[in-house]
Amino acid sequence: MSADIDTLLPYETGGDIRRRIAGSLAGFALRGGSLLAFAALLVFFSVAAPFFFTLGNIGNVLGQSAILGVLAIGLTIVIIGGGANVVKGGIDLSLAANLGLSAAVYATIISAGYGDAVAVAGALATGALIGAINAAAVVVFGIVPLLATLAVMNVVAGLELVLTQNTVVSASSDLLSFLSAYGPFDIPVLAYVLTGFTAIAAAIVQFTPLGLRLYAVGAFPEAARAAGLPVKRIVAGSYIASGLCGGLAGILSVSYLSGSTTGAGEMLLPVVVTALLSVVFSRRLVPTIGGTLLSTLLVGFLTNGFQLLNISSTLVSGIQGVLILLVVAATSLQRGKGAV
């Protein structure tokens, strides 16, 4: 028997075919278009603002993007493991509040006279604990992630207020000075941190069996279960990983701001936007760590370019909004769910 299955006609109606063609066109436009737009943006800023395309400036943008990038990578892991459905899928709204509390814990421990090791452990443990609470709410109690992490976000934000009495806790330590300094090539250390962290996260998520399983669990939990994967454990792990990212971002933010300050919650929307944008930078239109880095940098370069051109940076958030609308619309179309 030679099963020449390639020649079999797909079993679909005219409507299906039309939808598929529209879908793959949208996908192609999205993938090619977004990279092209990114490149065009870089070229435009390079021409308009000569300082833009210098090693120093690019390093600065990387450094300024570090906190956002680490948080967005955490959220990306959760979205991969929970599925990209915006309403029911994986999301961690507590990330920004997590950053706030972890930063407060770090700064408080330092200002109480303890060393960096204790403070780092405290901040990371705080992040991991918040992640574990999210994981329990989602996996054990079966609460929709959107609601579960929203509730945890409020609790965490409240704890931060209790801990800091809504004031700035300034802190300085060897680690903080090191992180806020400049490294080789006059590039901020934070830029190296972001690059290194992305590399580690990408290695785990994109190149290990664990990462592949994370994708399977998020995209089709029944299939993952049928393949014998511990679905609940993997989902829980994604929230804990995201919590750790929150803790790490907290440490970075203390170094960046020389202390813990209030208002970390304002990071939430940029983080969500950045993680959602990630999909346009991948071949299969799924969230990836590399894609998240690119979308972090896109936002970073936009802000930076506008500053260099003396354009109000408030425009950036408007542009982010438009990008999100485009991305969500195009990905829904690509998945053939455009017509409700």
Binding site: R213, Y215, A216, A219, F220, E222, A224, L229, L285, V286
Partner: peptide
């Protein structure tokens, strides 16, 4: 009856999900 396969996976990934071949001595796929 319902095909339990992840739509965004390649054929290879689908076949080996859960028992992925690794690079010798490394934790990578």
């Amino acid at each position: 009856q319902d095909r339990l396969l992840v739509p965004s996976f390649t054929v290879g990934e689908s076949l080996f999900l859960g028992r992925e071949p690794r690079l010798a001595g490394l934790p990578f796929l």
